[in-house]
Amino acid sequence: MLVVTGGAGFIGSNLVAGLNERGRGDIAVVDDLRDGRKSLNLADLDFADYFEFDDFEARLLAGEDLGIEAIFHQGACSDTTEWDGRYVMANNYRYSVNLLDYCQARGIPFIYASSASVYGAGPTFTEDRAHERPLNMYAFSKFAFDQHVRSRQGAFKSQVAGLRYFNVYGPREQHKGKMASVAWHFNNQIAADGECRLFAGSDGYGDGEQRRDFVYVGDCVAVNLWLWDSGTAGIYNCGTGRCQPFNDVADAVIAWRGAGEKRYIPFPDELKGRYQSFTEADLTALRAAGYPHEFATVEQGVPRYLDWLAARET
């Protein structure tokens, strides 16, 4: 049995879909369905079992043998505005350590979600301690687990691999609300008001010219599955390796819809000093490990995403 934690969430449900495409339905989904809307991400997918995340953790801590072949650990509190450190560390750090310990005791591959947020404001996005300075509690929890993994490298008995996701967008993110991608928000804004709203200039960037490494979720799934197939261990960036301005995302949405305008709004005071105005994955380590595939640009990925959304609406 394969386990996908956060399996009803954004990247997790796309991983379930990717495994289904390989003919794998022997999947246990682990999640927190107090927000039952996430279940819609699984309505068209095949899986064999479901566990609430706390029940799953309790079973592992009790030493129960669930016949697990591999764990893809995508579950976390992903709200970057959550400052309850005890809550975030319990859900993102300690939970991850417990899953890792279980996998190590049984020789189970463990592939987990880290985050590019560990780099803070940058400007260098290389998998090196010297470039890591998280700016919020979510980022700190991911940084802390990466630190834990590093402290145990050389002693692992089975594969342990982490992926530092950059700005992921694509299908099955509709439940994320304010934390959904700008592609999602821009599309909804244009549908409702005929315009999408971008931040005015900040941090030396022009209007809408703050730059991020926007990565299509299907590419993230491909990297996860390649890691598992190859048995590659380590912590790697998962982005396209190229930054693009928010204007490019807006332009791609407008081009797909054939209508829409851009409007620039003042940069929020509450985000000053806590906002990544530039991200760009350094893919040197991932390429050196042998990952062969290219990543979709915004111009390629956004229409693919909007095609998927349109098909779901019909």
Rank of each mutant, 00 (worst) to 15 (best):
V118M: 09
D55M: 05
S115T: 13
Q104W: 07
F246C: 10
M89F: 13
Y165G: 02
P268F: 09
G63I: 00
Y50S: 00
Q189L: 04
R106G: 04
I108G: 05
A130T: 08
R106N: 02
Q189H: 00
C220P: 10
F199I: 07
F156N: 01
R257A: 10
C103Y: 08
D49H: 08
A288I: 10
E132D: 07
A252F: 04
R34F: 14
T284I: 07
I190T: 12
G25R: 09
L15Y: 04
N237Y: 02
G63M: 05
F143L: 09
A311D: 10
K272Y: 13
G63P: 09
R150N: 12
G25W: 05
D65C: 00
K142N: 12
D213S: 04
W308C: 13
A58M: 08
V253Q: 02
A139P: 11
V168K: 01
Q74I: 04
V217M: 07
D79M: 01
V16G: 05
T279K: 06
L60K: 06
A48K: 14
Y50P: 06
R287A: 13
A200L: 01
Y102V: 02
Y50L: 01
V182Q: 14
D44I: 00
Y112F: 14
E21H: 11
A310H: 03
F110S: 02
F47N: 01
F145L: 01
A296L: 15
P266Y: 08
R133F: 12
P303H: 09
I71D: 05
R242G: 07
E280I: 08
A310L: 04
Q300K: 13
Y165C: 00
E299G: 10
A28F: 10
W184Y: 15
R304H: 13
G36M: 11
G25S: 14
Q276S: 12
K178I: 15
M137L: 14
A58I: 07
Q244E: 15
Q104V: 03
R287D: 09
F166Y: 13
Y138R: 06
Q244H: 11
V118C: 10
L163Q: 09
D307P: 02
E261L: 11
R24W: 14
